[in-house]
Computed example of a mutant assay.
Amino acid sequence: MDTNSTESRWRPSPRAVFSRQFAALFEAAGNPTLRRVAAAAEARMRGARAAGQKGAVSVQRISDWKGGRNVPARFESLIPVLLTLIGEARKSSGPVPPALLDMQEWKRLWTAADDWDPDSEMSECPYLGLTSYRRRDAELFFGRSRPTGEFTELVRRTVDADGGIVVLVGASGAGKSSLLEAGVIPELTRAGQDWEVCALTPGVDPVRALLDALARAQTEPDVSAGEPEPGAASAETTRDPRGTEIDEVSAESVAAVIAGWAVGSNGVCS
Rank of each mutant, 00 (worst) to 15 (best):
A174Y: 10
Q193R: 15
R144P: 00
V166T: 09
Q104A: 14
P147S: 12
P95K: 14
S145I: 00
K176D: 00
L154N: 02
E121P: 01
R90G: 03
L168W: 06
T189N: 09
R134D: 12
R146T: 09
T158Q: 08
Q104P: 02
E88Y: 08
E139W: 06
D102A: 00
W116K: 03
V184S: 02
P126T: 14
P147E: 07
R135S: 11
R108M: 04
V167N: 06
T111C: 05
E181S: 01
D102S: 13
R135G: 14
R90V: 09
A113I: 05
V184K: 01
G173R: 07
A182H: 08
Y133Q: 01
G175V: 06
Q104N: 13
D102T: 08
T131F: 11
V184I: 13
A191R: 15
T189A: 08
R134M: 06
G164A: 02
D162N: 15
G163K: 11
V155E: 03
S92N: 15
W110G: 02
E121A: 13
K107T: 06
D117K: 13
T152M: 02
A113H: 01
M122N: 01
I185N: 00
G183L: 07
A113N: 05
P95Q: 15
A182P: 13
S172R: 15
D137F: 05
G170L: 03
L188N: 02
R157M: 12
M122F: 14
P118S: 10
R156F: 02
P98K: 07
D117W: 07
G94V: 13
R190S: 12
V169A: 12
G175S: 05
D117I: 06
G192V: 11
G149L: 04
V155Q: 05
A161Y: 00
F151N: 05
E124A: 15
T148N: 05
D160P: 02
L179Y: 01
E88W: 15
E139G: 03
L140C: 13
P95V: 12
G170T: 11
G129P: 04
E139Y: 03
W116E: 15
D137Q: 09
A191G: 15
E88F: 00
M103H: 08
Q104R: 12
G192Y: 11
V96M: 11
E181K: 03
A174F: 07
M122E: 11
Q104T: 09
D160C: 01
P126G: 15
L180D: 01
D162H: 06
A99R: 13
F151K: 03
E153V: 05
S178H: 02
A161P: 00
P95R: 15
L100I: 06
G129V: 07
R135Q: 14
E88Q: 12
R135Y: 00
A171Q: 13
T111F: 10
K107N: 01
E187K: 07
F141M: 00
G183E: 02
A89S: 09
A138M: 03
E139H: 04
V167T: 12
E121K: 11
F142N: 05
Q193T: 12
V169T: 10
G164I: 04
